[in-house]
Amino acid sequence: MAQQLSDDDLSAALAGDPSGFSAVYVAISPAVLGYFRARGVDDAEALTQDVFVDVLPKLAGVTGGHTGLRTFIFSVAHARLVDYRRREERTPHLAEYDPLNDARSSASAEDEALGSLGGISATLARLNEEQREVLVLRIVADLSIEQVAGIMDKTPGAIKQLQRRGLSALRELVTEKDHAAS
């Protein structure tokens, strides 16, 4: 249960005494906090603090005793609640990205990259198996000639020859494809 505010504490608060304000805060802040929580405020503690920051410099002008003080504090609390609701209405609602609700009609960069890899794979498939393997190991896997030779159990000279022939064949296939497209 909240502490009751004595007449001496009220007089001290209205006179600007910090101990009087402290007593007002201890007696009335739980009710203000409960008001904000009951109204569904996310950060009710911060809004309660804002109310008492607004009330402090205006305490000297409060009239009506205990009832007048409570009325004044809750009128400030109500004004802060209205401000909070208005700010909440203007704040955009952030939602998680859901690819199932994505209505874009163009393909994503990922889809385009994977699609172009499909074209490369189809072109590479037209090379013989050894040329394709050498080019993939050298270019995609970024292995040295010696490493590829060890993997394929061939000499470095044979790997160089397969790479040269594979690149030459690939160049012809790409040139052929470009001429067909235009």
Score class of each variant (00 low, 15 high):
7 D>T: 07
7 D>G: 08
8 D>I: 09
8 D>Q: 13
10 L>N: 07
11 S>H: 12
11 S>N: 15
11 S>I: 12
14 L>T: 12
14 L>K: 09
15 A>C: 03
16 G>H: 13
16 G>S: 06
18 P>M: 06
19 S>P: 09
19 S>W: 07
20 G>T: 05
20 G>C: 02
21 F>W: 10
22 S>H: 14
22 S>M: 14
23 A>F: 00
28 I>G: 06
28 I>L: 07
29 S>L: 02
29 S>Y: 02
30 P>R: 09
31 A>F: 08
32 V>R: 01
32 V>P: 01
34 G>C: 13
34 G>S: 15
34 G>V: 12
35 Y>Q: 05
37 R>I: 02
38 A>S: 09
38 A>N: 08
39 R>S: 10
43 D>I: 05
45 E>H: 07
48 T>S: 00
50 D>F: 00
50 D>T: 00
51 V>W: 00
53 V>R: 05
56 L>H: 01
56 L>R: 00
57 P>Y: 03
57 P>H: 01
59 L>E: 04
60 A>N: 04
62 V>G: 12
64 G>P: 06
64 G>E: 05
67 T>R: 11
68 G>M: 07
71 T>G: 11
71 T>S: 10
73 I>L: 09
73 I>S: 03
73 I>W: 01
75 S>A: 11
75 S>F: 06
77 A>G: 07
77 A>M: 05
79 A>D: 07
81 L>S: 04
81 L>N: 04
82 V>E: 15
82 V>S: 15
82 V>H: 13
83 D>T: 09
86 R>T: 13
87 R>M: 14
88 E>Q: 11
88 E>A: 14
90 R>E: 11
91 T>V: 04
91 T>Q: 11
92 P>Y: 07
93 H>M: 12
96 E>Y: 13
96 E>A: 14
97 Y>A: 12
98 D>P: 14
99 P>S: 13
99 P>I: 13
101 N>F: 12
102 D>K: 04
104 R>E: 02
104 R>L: 03
109 A>H: 06
109 A>G: 08
110 E>K: 07
111 D>W: 04
113 A>F: 01
114 L>M: 07
115 G>H: 04
115 G>Q: 04
120 I>Q: 10
120 I>F: 10
121 S>A: 15
124 L>W: 03
125 A>K: 11
125 A>I: 08
126 R>D: 08
129 E>W: 02
130 E>L: 10
132 R>G: 02
132 R>H: 01
132 R>S: 02
140 V>G: 04
142 D>N: 09
142 D>C: 05
144 S>C: 08
145 I>Q: 09
147 Q>W: 10
147 Q>C: 09
148 V>I: 00
148 V>A: 00
149 A>T: 05
152 M>T: 02
153 D>R: 15
154 K>F: 12
155 T>P: 03
156 P>L: 06
156 P>M: 04
156 P>C: 07
159 I>T: 02
159 I>D: 01
160 K>Y: 15
162 L>H: 13
162 L>A: 13
162 L>N: 11
163 Q>A: 07
165 R>F: 03
165 R>Y: 00
168 S>G: 09
168 S>R: 09
169 A>L: 10
169 A>F: 10
170 L>S: 11
170 L>Q: 02
177 K>E: 12
178 D>M: 11
179 H>Q: 15
181 A>S: 06
181 A>G: 03
